[in-house]
Design a protein around this nucleic acid. Structure first.
Length: 187
DNA sequence: TAAGTGATAGTT
DNA sequence: ACTATCACTTAG
C-alpha cells in the first residue's frame, strides 16, 4: 500500500528511520522501477546543514510544502538529489534518499546509469536520481497524490539492523547522528 | 585523494 | 558582475 500524508507528517528523524525498508516506486514510460530504501538522512530548518536554514528561496521552496512532496535539487554541476518533505507545512524539513537496493526494472536502471555491471548502481543520492531518471522536472510533485507515478510503498521489508551515523558530505552541524542505514532486510 | 561541473545565493 | 559554496561521482 502507498504511504500517505500522515506517514510523512511526523518528526523528520522518525520518518528518516522508518523510510528504511520502504520501496520507492516509479511507473515510468519504459516500465516500473522499484527499489528498497536502505540509506536516508534527515534535514530540518533549525539545522545549519539544511538548505532551508536561512529561510525560503526559489531553490528550496518545495521543502516548505506539505509533507509528502518530492524535493529534487541540482548540485555540483551534474547531480540531482531526491528528498521527501516531512512535518507540517512551512517547517522546511525533508529526508534525503541516499541509497536504494534495486528490486524491479534493473535493466532500465542500468540503461539510465550507462552501466553494464550491476555494481554501485544506486548506492548514492546522485546515483538514485540518475537510475530512476529523476531530474529537476520532478521537483515539487506530491507523492501522496493517487495520480502520481512516483510514490512510496510498504511491501513488508523489515530492516535487520539500522545503523545510525553522522551525515555525509556536509561542512556544518557534522556531528548530528541523522543518517540511517540498513545493509540487510527480512520480509 | 582530487578533479570535474554549473546552478545558486549572497556580496560588490 | 563576481565569488564561494555545494546534502556528489568517478577514476586513479
Amino acid at each position: 500500500m502507498r504511504l500517505l500524508h500522515p506517514f510523512f507528517n511526523r518528526q523528520t528523524e522518525t520518518v528518516a528511520k522508518e523510510l528504511i525498508g520502504k520501496v520507492l516506486v516509479y511507473e515510468s514510460e519504459e516500465g516500473i522501477i522499484k527499489g528498497i530504501i536502505n540509506e536516508t538522512e534527515a534535514y530540518t530548518q533549525d539545522d545549519e546543514a539544511s538548505h532551508t536554514f536561512k529561510g525560503k528561496t526559489k531553490r528550496n521552496e518545495v521543502m516548505f510544502k506539505e509533507a509528502g512532496h518530492l524535493y529534487i535539487y541540482f548540485t555540483y554541476g551534474m547531480h540531482f538529489c531526491a528528498n521527501i518533505v516531512t512535518e507540517d507545512e512551512n517547517t522546511g524539513c525533508a529526508v534525503l534518499i541516499r541509497s536504494i537496493i534495486p528490486l524491479e526494472g534493473k535493466e532500465i536502471i542500468k540503461k539510465n546509469r550507462n552501466k553494464e555491471e550491476s555494481k554501485d548502481l544506486t548506492n548514492g543520492p546522485g546515483k538514485v536520481c540518475q537510475a530512476y531518471g529523476l531530474s529537476k522536472d520532478y521537483n515539487g510533485i506530491d507523492l501522496t497524490d493517487h495520480k502520481s507515478k512516483i510514490y512510496l510503498e510498504d511491501l513488508g521489508f523489515i530492516p535487520k539492523k539500522i545503523l545510525i551515523t553522522k551525515r555525509i558530505g556536509i561542512s556544518k552541524n557534522k556531528d548530528r547522528l541523522w543518517r540511517f542505514i540498513s545493509k540487510e532486510f527480512t520480509s
